[in-house]
Design a binder for these strands. Structure first.
Lengths: 328, 328
DNA sequence: TTGTAGGCGTTATCAG
DNA sequence: CTGATAACGCCTACAA
């Protein structure tokens, strides 16, 4: 490995002069500086990240932590983060799995963006206490070193539920996320509020998992209990697609017997037959905002918690109930 | 930041003893060791990654470099890599973009898995010359520090092309990847070989880009030139889907007028109407094998270049030509 | 403008 | 078994 010491020797100066020259300090003559740069190039010098991090106590790297690498949501999200990070001279790395958590306390990264339920809140707070900078996308956490950028789950779930109600469905199944999912709980809360406002609405909760399998199990239950057209709100699109899959070779048709809406607007949603109604939001913006907030915290700036707004996407997976009274 | 020096002070021993105890050396009494461990825990000690990397000249981190974070192929691929890495005590980080290339020469990571055309081969060889360990998934490169794990593109493209021929199509469009794509070139080569073996097969190359837009442009051209049912081989599924999208509101129907096969078997393929015929391979295995090879190189073991096998997936996007002679 | 020297946190060598 | 001590590569007062 070639170090600044080697450059110093070759250029006939001291290592500190090399360091100054390499870092573009004006404390060095242009002449010696260019001599040093030339030597560095010739020797194929590459600075050592570990040494620099050790001394400067920063790595200029941000870590994004995800539950897994699958999932259609992540592509745009990470793209948004990277764009912001790079613009400010930071690199973004993506990590998954418990084992990689260590990178945060060990200061391998300057900060973390968390979208990973396997990261417990206690763990995050513990790191934040020791001065790690964190932005969470999947929970609420009050701590000076932690900021949160959350989806407007309440608005989204309200839109979705009211959509089903407006289309004339009184009986509505809601397929939840896994236990402990913040998004799931928030969305459920909004569903309940809508139900409270609509006296004649009956709703049934089905425990899901945000994966296809949850939608499949829900499909089985709905089919067993089926008597008349119903509304179904899957708390994410992936479960909605699992539900469609399972129902596809039965007598129950989506958009006719089962009126389905999801959440996330993943790419697949628009390829479903019929097109899946769902809740949309800008994944890129979400990621970008999260990164912005994190970099601000790192810079020591004050930040406010931010929210990502959502909108409803129509789809023929929900059609108007034949029995509904049209009020217009 | 609490360092081993602090622990040493608290436990009343020297820093070297602390280091030994922390690393589980048997050169320390169980008694002092447990005293040290207790002190470490009490002080919330976390080792500093930069310091350790600097001294040990390894980070126990592997980097996967992708063109972008989108793309359905990556989820499983990265999952396979991570599994292998973790099992051997390595962490996996995912990087994208030119800026992050520096992590390799700067020794922030112990090795890299490359699936990213924006990494030039010269750059990779330069790093390999300086002792970086690399596995490439998207090119061929002869270098002692570089190994390659490639798809069996030839077999896949041959299967796909012959599938169209067997179904009775004489005129076959082939939509390529972007210029310089290794996969695209390999697949094209195989197409040409099949064409050479089938005298009456006519094939037309359309320049694509492995993105939806390429498929859309191809659709336009095919539609302009359409006279009778044709076969189309999109060199990846994403372009095939772009092509379907663009054709969906025209008079040309997939599986009737345009007989389409893709490559990759992404999740969306099985949701297309009709189901997209394509070439499948285990993305998880691909990633796992790449990681295995890389860790072997790092360990100094000899490795052979490996290949990932492929298979054909039937789909109604290709049906038998009405004019074809059935030979059975 | 350049050089000297100390230190970041860790590991590892070599004496005690 | 334990303790000094010297690196690892880089940065940065401070001194010259």
């Amino acid at each position: 490995m070639v170090s600044i010491k080697d450059i110093a020797k070759k250029a006939g100066v001291s290592i500190s002069t090399v360091s100054y020259a390499l870092n573009g300090s004006d404390k060095v003559t242009d002449e010696t500086s260019s001599k040093i740069l030339a030597a560095a190039k010739e020797l194929n010098y590459v600075p050592n990240a570990a040494a620099r991090s050790l001394k400067k106590r920063e790595s200029k790297i941000i870590g994004a932590f995800l539950t897994d690498f699958k999932g259609d949501v992540y592509g745009e999200l990470l793209g948004g983060m990277k764009e912001v990070c790079n613009a400010q001279g930071y690199d973004l790395i993506v990590c998954s799995g418990k084992q990689s958590h260590r990178m945060l306390p060990e200061k391998m990264i300057d900060g973390a963006i968390i979208l990973d339920q396997t990261f417990t809140s206690e763990e995050l707070v513990r790191y934040a206490d020791r001065n790690s900078k964190i932005v969470v996308l999947d929970r609420e956490l009050g701590h000076p070193n932690i900021n949160q950028v959350l989806l407007d789950n309440k608005a989204g779930a309200t839109l979705a539920t009211e959509y089903l109600v407006d289309k004339g469905y009184k009986k509505i199944y809601v397929v939840t996320g896994p236990d402990g999912s913040f998004d799931s709980m928030q969305r459920m809360k909004a569903v309940k509020l809508v139900a409270d406002r609509n006296e004649d609405m009956e709703w049934i909760e089905i425990a899901g998992d945000f994966m296809k399998s949850g939608g499949e199990r829900a499909a089985d239950q709905i089919r067993r209990e089926y008597t008349q057209p119903v509304g179904v709100f899957c708390l994410n699109d992936e479960m909605a697609i699992g539900l469609c899959d399972r129902l596809s070779d039965t007598e129950l048709q989506i958009g006719k017997h089962v009126h389905l809406i999801g959440f996330d607007n993943i790419e697949l949603a628009r390829y479903m037959q019929p097109r899946l109604a769902t809740i949309d939001y800008s994944k890129r913006k979400w990621g970008a905002l999260a990164a912005e907030q994190l970099l601000k915290i790192i810079a020591g700036d004050k930040v406010e918690n931010e929210r990502i707004y959502v909108s409803l996407v129509d789809g023929d997976s929900v059609t108007r109930s034949a029995h509904s009274h049209t009020h217009e």
